[in-house]
């Protein structure tokens, strides 16, 4: 059942060097030529052939595997430390999710003007100037903004009423909401009813 390659290998291991009779030969022809060659032509191996005892030791060591605290174990550890990624499977990069950037702000001339007014109010507040806008101007601004925001919400264009970059406090909100409700003669109870009925 042994293949020509195997028989050739066995003979080589036993010390019989195959004689090359032609540059291109099939394995079976090589095997035949070895059989046919006279014993005298088989030269003893000049390489450092291990002794039978060494071979047996080698086979035993192979079957045992690498023992701890040996030179072989130290070499394997050193290799693992040098290239930890290569010891396992090659790592691949997998993109799990892409999170887009927040939507860019679209600027218009009117919006820029409103931002300038807002910045002016903020800086005046920071300086402690509460009269930067007279009451009638504040009423006009608050009323117009209230109507604009409500119209947008009714049209389905909903967005947070104040942006992330604001210093509005909870107290500010309660004062303003209370004043707005009072201005149109509403109670908090009515606001709650309307919110629950309209799912707002």
């Amino acid at each position: 059942m042994s293949s020509p390659d195997r028989s050739s290998a066995k003979r080589t291991a036993a010390g019989a060097k195959p004689v090359k009779t032609a540059s291109v030969q099939t394995a079976s022809v090589k095997a035949t030529s070895i059989k046919a060659a006279p014993k005298a032509s088989r030269k003893p191996s000049m390489t450092n052939e291990p002794s039978p005892q060494e071979k047996a030791d080698f086979v035993k060591a192979m079957s045992k595997g690498i023992q701890p605290n040996t030179e072989a174990a130290r070499k394997v550890d050193a290799k693992k430390r040098a290239a930890p990624e290569k010891s396992g499977e090659a790592e691949t990069v997998k993109i799990l999710r892409k999170i887009p950037a927040p939507q860019a702000v679209v600027s218009t001339a009117e919006s820029d003007e409103a931002l300038r007014v807002a910045a002016m109010i903020e800086s005046a507040l920071a300086a402690g100037d509460l009269n930067c806008l007279q009451p009638h101007a504040q009423q006009a601004l608050i009323g117009a903004l209230c109507r604009l925001y409500a119209a947008n919400a009714e049209a389905g264009n909903r967005f947070p009423v104040v942006s992330g970059r604001t210093a509005v406090t909870a107290t500010d909100v309660m004062v303003m909401c209370g004043a707005l409700l009072k201005a149109v003669d509403l109670q908090v109870f009515e606001l709650g009813m309307w919110q629950s009925w309209s799912n707002n």
Binding site: E91, V93, K94, I95, L96, K98, I99, P100, A101
Partner: peptide, 27 residues
């Protein structure tokens, strides 16, 4: 530590994020 290719700079807009997995690590 190996350099792992994660994408093209031109396809990575400012403000964008990617969650990637390299081996068992999520980055």
């Amino acid at each position: 530590m190996a350099e792992q290719f994660v994408g093209k700079s031109s396809e990575f807009k400012d403000g964008e994020r990617q969650i990637i997995q390299i081996g068992k690590r999520e980055i």
